[in-house]
Amino acid sequence: MILADRTWQRLRRIPPSYLVFAALLLTLWVLRPHMMNPNILGIFIRQIVPLGILVLGQLLVMRVRSIDLSGGGVILLINYYISSGLFPGASMMTFIAMAIATGLIIGTFNGIMIAKRRVSAVIVTLAVSIVLVGFVQYLSSGKPPGDVPAMFAALYNTKLLGVPTPVLLWIALTLLMSLFLARTVFGRAVASVGENLTAAHFSGVAVERTVIVAHILAGLMAALAALVQTASIAVGSVRVGLDLPILAVAATILGGVVFGRGEGGVWGPFFGVLSFALLFILMTTLGVDEPGKLIIQGFIILLAAIFYGVRSAKP
């Protein structure tokens, strides 16, 4: 009986994303076996890398009971820098440095507003996104800017050991984040702030600093996601990436990380993003139209959240 209880407890800790991923992989294998080709899957997974990188930041801020919806604005702004030709002759490294600086500045602003001013995280990051989107649209008068320097697309299309480079970057960042959370003092601080803010404060955890650092890292991840996204579409756009933050929230939840609780770790949300990629492949090959995709996506997020909500219910 005790054994059964333990097994049950262990089973309950599995993030919904693993189950969804396994179910989708099985469905794809049964219905469309020819799609189970590493090359084809690699191309599809490469497209979802910006979301995957954004999720790394989102899971961090969600573990400290915050949220970051500003990623859409950051992606749009960085895409505009690179594609507008405002900085003629700038090298790729310059663009990367500018992108990272932008991400860090916006992350710091978010963090200070949320941790020091205690303003609602939803509203601050939403407002930052609104300001950035409006700013980019104002600069470009609503017209798509020009092309992205060819180096970005060239780098995007390379492969290392048969795996597309963006996918390798994503896996490397996920690995780093997982080590960072598991092996550093900051990782412990994140877990304790998520568990109980007041208790963490009285145990000597610098709560405000932890939340600010989490937001700075989320801004950095948004900048990296913006670089990959820009390289992947190779043109400027005034609409790119606007729905990514909310999808990132969904993937994070699917991965078993909810506000303040991080049972899914870093790999839960990783598989959450992969599940979205698989879902996209599956529905595209099965010829499901766009409304159908929306409905199925909604149901999968809802069912995963219900599954998670019911089992984590307090007695």
Binding site: R117, V119, S120, V124, A127, I130, V131, L132, G134
Partner: peptide
Amino acid sequence: SPFIQTTIKGAILLLVVGLQSRKKMGL
């Protein structure tokens, strides 16, 4: 420009919520 309107909207939102700090941190 209709696009500057979006920026102003966001700035007003930041100003108003920035002026009312709460006791608790969070969403």
